[in-house]
């Protein structure tokens, strides 16, 4: 079927290639499931969803490239969107690596600071007295609201953005950690004390593991906040980065590139989130069937 005349020509039919590759992967999985029954079960279970996705993509394809039912400028053809991912892969890869660096530095520092602050607040009355009000006031401020101050204080855009990401992670982690620690049943500490646990051992052998489910909840909320902050922070003077890329392309009215960027962000963030879930399942295997979230 020919494309509608309104759409610009594309160098290659990337969407078609994508369909072919996806189809081949599915067939390969189907073939493999003959030998692995578990894979087959999953394939059957996921089958309806997979077909749903492809029906949606087909409808989108018809609405854009085939009949041009949607405004061509804002809704480019899928060929173009997939084309961007292939043709600009070098730039995109560079952007992803910049963003990843920022995200990991910020996330790591924020998470460590959050867990430490939370533990101190949870265990020490004096720290709690002085620091909790501060957390309560500073925490709810969206970290992007700090942009003007941060730009002045930090020497470079990278460190400023990393700080913002860290701040976004720090708040939920602190709150959940401290609430987790203060919700540890007193009986655990009492048992510990009759078994010879003292001082720091109380904290690290009883308090922290008991608060772990809460800490993970905080880290999870922090992860979501960090994604939002990352993309916004990159819009304020970064040189590369996936958020910067989207913003830049939007200014150039290259909506195919914007969608490509959004698609990549979606995929990467969901991979990171599932990674965090995996880690949680592994570390909190003891509470399987006890708490679910």
């Amino acid at each position: 079927m020919p494309n509608a005349p309104g759409h610009p020509r594309v160098a290659a039919h990337y969407f078609t290639y994508f369909l072919i590759i996806a189809g081949a992967l599915y067939l390969a999985a189907l073939a493999a499931s003959v030998f692995a029954a578990k894979l087959g079960e999953r394939l059957v279970y996921r089958g309806a969803f997979i077909s749903g996705v492809f029906i949606f993509l087909t409808v989108l394809n018809l609405a854009t490239s085939k009949f041009a039912l949607l405004p061509v400028l804002y809704f480019p053809s899928l060929d173009k969107v997939f084309g961007v991912i292939v043709e600009e892969r070098a730039l995109l890869a560079k952007c992803i690596s910049y963003s990843a660096r920022l995200l990991f530095i910020g996330y790591f520092l924020g998470a460590v600071a959050g867990v430490c602050t939370g533990i101190c607040i949870g265990f020490n009355k004096t720290v709690s007295y002085w620091v909790s009000p501060l957390v309560r006031v500073l925490g709810p401020i969206p970290s992007t609201a700090w942009v003007p101050l941060v730009l002045v204080v930090f020497p470079s855009a990278v460190s400023a953005s990393a700080f913002l990401v860290g701040l976004a992670v720090w708040f939920p982690t602190t709150v959940m950690t401290s609430s987790g620690v203060s919700n540890v049943p007193q009986a655990y500490f009492e048992v510990g004390s009759t078994l010879g646990a003292k001082g720091a051992r109380n904290i690290f052998s009883i308090g922290v593991p008991a608060a772990m489910p809460h800490i993970f909840l905080g880290l999870f909320n922090g992860t979501c906040a960090s994604f939002i902050t990352l993309v916004t922070a990159e819009m304020i003077g970064a040189k590369y980065g996936i958020g910067w890329y989207i913003n830049w392309q939007k200014d150039m009215l290259s909506y195919a590139n914007v969608y490509a960027g959004l698609f990549i962000i979606g995929v990467i963030f969901s991979i990171l989130i599932s990674g965090l879930f995996r880690l949680r399942d592994k570390m909190l295997v003891w509470q399987k069937g006890v708490i679910k979230w």
């Binding site: 009986a187 009759t194 009883i206 593991p209 008991a210 003891w286």
Partner: peptide
């Protein structure tokens, strides 16, 4: 204060659920 020469068993088992 508490000490390990006096063991204590509570009504509820109070085992540490993460161990």
């Amino acid at each position: 204060g508490p000490g390990c020469e006096r063991g204590f068993v509570f009504q509820e088992h109070t085992l540490f659920p993460w161990l």
